[in-house]
């Protein structure tokens, strides 16, 4: 009895299952797709590189490197370690919050 009912429903749905032809639907979807933000992200590294090159011409690079070297030498070692250890923690926390904001409805599978 139960099998007969199951078959009846399956037959009913397969009879009513229609394949919908595209008829320009996919083209309409493609036309509606918004431009993604990250397409313009190349601007940031490009300007950073240009800035570095200009700075290289304007500043005495050797002096800057030496100054940084002396600062590093003079700073106690545990300060340096603490500074380095803090970085991954900050990055992980930042990443956690960034992930949290990524549309939770669709992200779990």
């Amino acid at each position: 009895m139960e099998n007969r009912d199951e078959l009846q429903i399956k037959e009913f749905f397969s009879k009513n299952k229609v394949e919908i032809s595209d008829d320009g639907f996919s083209n309409r979807v493609l036309r509606q797709l918004p431009e993604k933000q990250y397409k313009t992200n190349w601007i940031v590294p490009l300007f950073a590189l240009a800035g570095m090159i200009i700075a290289g011409f304007l500043i005495d690079v050797q002096k800057v490197i030496l100054t940084i070297y002396y600062i590093v030498i003079e700073v106690p070692l545990y300060f340096l370690f603490a500074g380095i250890m803090v970085l991954p923690v900050v990055v992980i926390i930042g990443y956690f919050f960034w992930e949290k904001n990524q549309l939770p409805k669709y992200r779990f599978f």
Partner: peptide, 29 residues
């Protein structure tokens, strides 16, 4: 609604983790 579904899928495609089939994810949207 189908159009909106595909646009949302496109915008959120980075959050698709591939644990289930893409069609399952699409139907959820």
């Amino acid at each position: 609604l189908a159009q909106e579904t595909f646009i949302k899928a496109y915008l959120n495609i980075r959050s698709f983790q591939g644990i289930s089939a893409f069609s399952t994810w699409l139907f959820r949207i």
